[in-house]
């Protein structure tokens, strides 16, 4: 997902009887569907896990602008260009909503940015893959945003108020992203033979990286169990991945494209598609910073930060000067 491999305390979920009164009240409030707000008491593990999770999600939105930004100057028509610009601008907005939510937990924006730029914090593995053709803009919207929606819709009910509210805004906008991607794919498959091949090639390259977005199976993970007890994770990785496959395969069929998995098959008794697991070694390798575009992405973010420094400082100096003038005039 946009937040992958988030480690919580790892000590296993405490029962209500094992908790002191404060933590017990906190957990009972979550169990009853209540929201936790910034100034409320919360266990340190909840706060730290959320900072990691929301921070990683925010970083993913920001870094996620790069693969699509790659095509803004080369969009095939003015209309497609305007749409893509609007979409990439939305991603920046999503990053900002999420950084604000993380900041309510007592971490500063600059700290989060520093942690991304130094590699201490991660972003989703998916954005380390290249966008080689225009059809990739279709595949990214359709598959990558489609996978993100699977995770983000349930997170609107997450226990942390600012995070839930950010998710509500994001989900409202995300549907546009997926639809514009699918629209590109429809145009491509109804175009020339070369365009159709391009669309198939994009699906071939993005299918498994999209499945990886959900992270490896976490049915046995103590971290996931804790996050689910805290309602900062609403479904297991496998549940969401299955849901994504079940939804996406018929859409691929509609497009006349072939999902690159020879074991993909409808399972009548399960009522779900059976499908092949992605290559998890590749996933861990990409997460370690060895993806095809990992170096490029980090270089681009570092460059934006370094070269934007004079703007940040200049505007602050200007604001200070204006404030001083106003004080002197009064």
């Amino acid at each position: 997902m946009y937040a992958q491999m988030i480690k919580s305390t790892g000590k296993g979920v405490k029962s209500l009887d094992e908790m002191d009164p404060e933590e017990r009240a906190f957990q009972e409030r979550i169990n009853a569907g209540g929201k936790i707000e910034p100034k409320d008491w919360m266990p340190e593990g909840y706060r730290k896990t959320l900072i990691r999770q929301i921070g990683q999600h925010a970083h993913s939105e920001i870094v996620g602008q790069l693969p699509e930004g790659n095509w803004i100057t080369r969009a095939p028509t003015l209309e497609r260009k305007a749409i893509l610009l609007a979409k990439v601008q939305d991603e920046a907005g999503h990053g900002l909503y999420l950084y604000c939510a993380a900041e309510t937990l007592g971490v500063s924006r600059d700290q989060l940015t520093r942690d991304l730029l130094t590699g201490r914090m991660k972003y989703s593995s998916i954005f380390n893959y290249p966008t080689l053709t225009w059809a990739d803009m279709g595949a990214v919207g359709w598959l990558v945003d489609g996978a993100a929606i699977m995770n983000q819709v349930p997170l609107q009910r997450t226990s942390y108020g600012p995070y839930a509210r950010a998710m509500v805004r994001i989900c409202k906008e995300e549907s546009f992203h997926q639809r514009q991607g699918f629209d590109i794919m429809m145009k491509m498959v109804n175009g020339t033979e070369a365009q159709r091949r391009m669309a198939q090639d994009a699906l071939n390259r993005f299918w498994y990286p999209s499945l990886m977005m959900f992270g490896p199976s976490d049915a046995e993970s103590v971290h996931s169990a804790q996050s689910m007890a805290w309602k900062i994770k609403m479904n297991t990785n496998d549940e969401l991945r299955q849901k994504f496959v079940d939804q996406t395969v018929p859409q691929a069929e509609y497009l006349g494209l072939t999902v690159p998995d020879e074991h993909l098959k409808w399972n009548e008794t399960r009522g779900h598609y059976d499908f092949s697991e992605p290559d998890w070694d590749e996933f861990f390798d990409v997460l370690q910073g060895n993806g095809p575009c990992s170096t490029d992405r980090m270089e681009a973010r570092n460059m934006a930060w370094d070269e934007g420094r004079w703007v940040r400082e200049g505007l602050l100096a200007h604001a200070e000067k204006k404030r001083a003038r106003k004080m002197a005039a009064e």
């Binding site: 910034p38 909503y97 309510t104 937990l105 500063s108 924006r109 420094r309």
Partner: peptide, 24 residues
């Protein structure tokens, strides 16, 4: 989507003259 009660937050104000400027 934060709410007004944001967490600990030090580096927001511009620093006095002669001190290093807060960058946030």
């Amino acid at each position: 989507m934060s709410s007004p009660e944001s967490g600990s937050y030090d580096a927001t104000e511009a620093a006095p003259h002669g001190k290093p400027r807060a960058t946030e």
